[in-house]
Design a protein around this nucleic acid. Sequence first.
DNA 1: TCATAAGCGAGACGGTACGTCACGTCTTGCG
DNA 2: CGCAAGACGTGACGTACCGTCTCGCTTATGA
Lengths: 239, 239, 239, 239
Amino acid sequence: MAATDLPDRRADPARLAPEDASTIAAQPSPATGSTGNARTTGSPATGSTGSRSAGSRRSEAARLAVLNAADDLLVEHGFEGLTIEGIAAAAGVAKQTIYRWWKSKVDILFDNLVLDAGTALGWPEHPSGPADVRAYVHRFAAFLGEDPAGRVLQALLGHAQLDPRTAELLHSGFLDELRARDVAHVRTCLGLADDDRAAVVLDAVLAPLYHRALVLRRPLDAAFVDALLDQQLDEQPAR
Amino acid sequence: MAATDLPDRRADPARLAPEDASTIAAQPSPATGSTGNARTTGSPATGSTGSRSAGSRRSEAARLAVLNAADDLLVEHGFEGLTIEGIAAAAGVAKQTIYRWWKSKVDILFDNLVLDAGTALGWPEHPSGPADVRAYVHRFAAFLGEDPAGRVLQALLGHAQLDPRTAELLHSGFLDELRARDVAHVRTCLGLADDDRAAVVLDAVLAPLYHRALVLRRPLDAAFVDALLDQQLDEQPAR
Amino acid sequence: MAATDLPDRRADPARLAPEDASTIAAQPSPATGSTGNARTTGSPATGSTGSRSAGSRRSEAARLAVLNAADDLLVEHGFEGLTIEGIAAAAGVAKQTIYRWWKSKVDILFDNLVLDAGTALGWPEHPSGPADVRAYVHRFAAFLGEDPAGRVLQALLGHAQLDPRTAELLHSGFLDELRARDVAHVRTCLGLADDDRAAVVLDAVLAPLYHRALVLRRPLDAAFVDALLDQQLDEQPAR
Amino acid sequence: MAATDLPDRRADPARLAPEDASTIAAQPSPATGSTGNARTTGSPATGSTGSRSAGSRRSEAARLAVLNAADDLLVEHGFEGLTIEGIAAAAGVAKQTIYRWWKSKVDILFDNLVLDAGTALGWPEHPSGPADVRAYVHRFAAFLGEDPAGRVLQALLGHAQLDPRTAELLHSGFLDELRARDVAHVRTCLGLADDDRAAVVLDAVLAPLYHRALVLRRPLDAAFVDALLDQQLDEQPAR
DNA sequence: TCATAAGCGAGACGGTACGTCACGTCTTGCG
DNA sequence: CGCAAGACGTGACGTACCGTCTCGCTTATGA
């Protein structure tokens, strides 16, 4: 079950070697949003010719340290207690190094979200039936409800309610793409006629999850998810 | 259509037990949460026996100025741009006067929410049929999606994702009560057997609204609400 | 030998009780230059009606702590090593408290200069003869050359070469006044016909002192000063 | 009137011993103070035997660009606004290139001073009479008071009051030597018995100039200089 | 009736974090 | 090896608000 098309930048060499044209990963440039910054476990990707003329490249170690520190501190102190200076200190990095590459703590969290969601919210390579949808929804519920990495999504969703720029980033940078992909897969798996119909099904499943997580603050236990799926998916074919 | 049981605290300092007259007279004590602070149009509540020995009572004008200023500034500058000092300046009030009665800007907004929701989210005095439910849901959608006063709910819901204390205040001080009331009314109007069943119906209607408002960020137009109601309400009796 | 007309604000109640109209001491207002701020040893001077309407007054303790800390740190680390943050830390004061009342470290040093010069560069109350001039010049040389408080003057004179705003402050706020007073006293003591002639004598004495201190960096020992005075003063009457 | 003995280092890397040809060939070594760096109009000094084994030599273009940029920026933004990064940018040079050859902006300015003073403060090749002294003093006054290049001397004199290292550099690297040369020439021109007597005359002339320029901030106009010279020079022979 | 104690405006204060600037060191390719 | 480019750790800058704290003034009791 490999992650497919949600841009998983985990070991994505696209950052420096854009031979993979299929993803959106823009060439990173200092603090112009937050694209293309994600935790990499791979090598520094020195293979390409690089468009940068000369000089020292961005420190991979610093980037990873910042992302991880932000994640840790978010869990530890919450979003409000999350501080650029705190991240810098925890990451052993200079404040200016953070500001060079990210515009705000939201930006840093966003990069973490893209990374973690790429890991946690994958679809099978060739999704083929309702069972794949069920599995994905369970995965989604686990991410949103329990996964510590899901805290980032929760925080960003919350902050998007408070700040239009966060909303814009979150939607056009992540949620829209996620949704488009999910709609397509649902359509395929359920054999639906068009995307609109698939979107209706997807919303019917996801809305209660978001509602329960964000508004009711109750756990998204497997039983709940299963009941939801039984109700929404089984009646679909009947239509 | 007078507001009924959602505690409209316009002139009512007792927040959680409206029927319990014994607690009504208690003058709100400084900054013990956010109880008893709401915009009042009536008199300064002189009816009580007052445990205060002497001196001037709380200034009603100041309280109203603060609440209104907070509302205005929230709309104008957003939650992040909302500051205690800004509210104090806009309200023509000393900072200390705010801190004497509220613990934080969340607290102020919460009072505004209680007040505005009391106005906007009322049920008819004797709700009696599905039509009342439909009307209420439309009202709710309008509040959540368009009403400038609904911005407060949106902001607090967002902030509740970031701060457990806000979540606690919002839920046990407002959402739980709102939900209990709505469940009861839905049960009555639809003639359902028990509260659990009513809660299921309520959630089935509200979840898509919240989802659309908070996650999808699309307008809650009347057509959408009607379609939702048609789907969820009409099929319920059939069960 | 009491200080006369150089505004000695040491224990000058003029800051809050301007019954002494002869001095320039303006009513202090936050960070509008640096007038009227100097170390006071007296009481908080509550006798007057004060133009400030209400609220807490400026903390005398903080003001003194800042001035003294700046003085100490200047001697210890030099002008370049003098830092607002360092002063704040050494004074046990918040940085903002400094910025509230002074615009820059130059401003703080200027206040110290006014204070210290008032102490060190006084004339006798009724200067009457060449001996008073001689005594004053010796005092001046000691101040410029040895007195740790003279370091402030040296630093400000140096910085005035680098920054026009410092130059402006130092001249119109201190040096011009000092010079006018000295010219008048010299004229009186030496029985000169007009101020221009007195200014020539004064310059003839002070120029070598400044030159030696600032340019040659040699000590202004008493022998040098005496020789200078012998040469310049004794021949003057002959003219 | 060719410049004579104030070491005009235009094409002369040996600073302290102009007559000593043995040290001339030494290529300046990186950042060991500020020796040997001055604007050259001639060739890159290829006459020497070059001790460097291989690799590229110091870029003459870069050196000139830095010195000129520093001069321009000093006039434009003042000493405080003068920045290594600003110089580098204005000179089209990498920051490291500056740090390789100079230790600080003071160092760069010092090189400019040595260069400009060499040009502006020359004596005739064989000074012979009081007229030469008068001419030199006029030249000096013009340099100190008007010449944009004199801004450098003013800035360094000012900064020397703030920083002992600058003072040390300025004195032992420039002022002492300048003074020694001037004393010798004055002695010759005025036919004085010894250097001490010449130094007294020199100081008597220069002190008022420095005083007027640095402390009084008044223009050093020709009339003032002439009056000064009349007074100090004409009475000297009488002694 | 009036002292008296609280509410209130004003705003100074010690703090924390912000986002920016420049420092001086370093590393990386190019020539 | 010099150099352009520029990332990096460092530290100070000046600002914005925080929440607490005094001040006098005003005002409505309740002794």
